[in-house]
């Protein structure tokens, strides 16, 4: 299981490198914000640990906070990226 996961890890790393080759400067911040939203996937980790029966009040409180944090990361991240790109489009269209 570990070896398979490490293989996936390495391959995903190369995909990440390959995807970002040429990016216009204006898209740097939206792209950062977009990748930021994607690592909100840590939400899944919190869901699994809490869902599969974490016990004890302190652990449950910590995990609820973790889920809230993850949700903020995901929801806020995608919304902010969308707003940034909306601004980008509004500025871009008159030129075309």
């Amino acid at each position: 299981m570990l070896v398979q996961n490490l293989a996936i890890l390495v391959l995903a790393g190369f995909v990440g490198f390959a995807v970002i080759s040429k990016v216009p400067n204006t898209l740097h911040t939206p792209l950062m914000s977009g990748t930021n939203a994607i690592h909100g996937i840590v939400l899944l980790g919190a869901l699994i640990v809490l869902g599969l029966g974490a016990t004890g009040a302190l652990d449950q409180i910590l995990l609820v906070i973790a889920i809230a944090f993850g949700t903020i990361n995901v929801v806020g991240g995608f919304l902010v990226t969308d707003r940034m790109l909306g601004m980008f489009k509004a500025k871009k269209e008159p030129e075309e």
């Binding site: 995903a12 690592h39 980790g45």
Partner: peptide, 22 residues
């Protein structure tokens, strides 16, 4: 890796790699 969750490994690593390049 710790939780054996493919989605986390792939999404996390893609962000790690593309984030470094960026």
């Amino acid at each position: 890796i710790a939780l054996n969750n493919t989605a986390l490994i792939v999404a996390g690593m893609i962000v790690g790699a593309s984030g470094s390049i960026l």
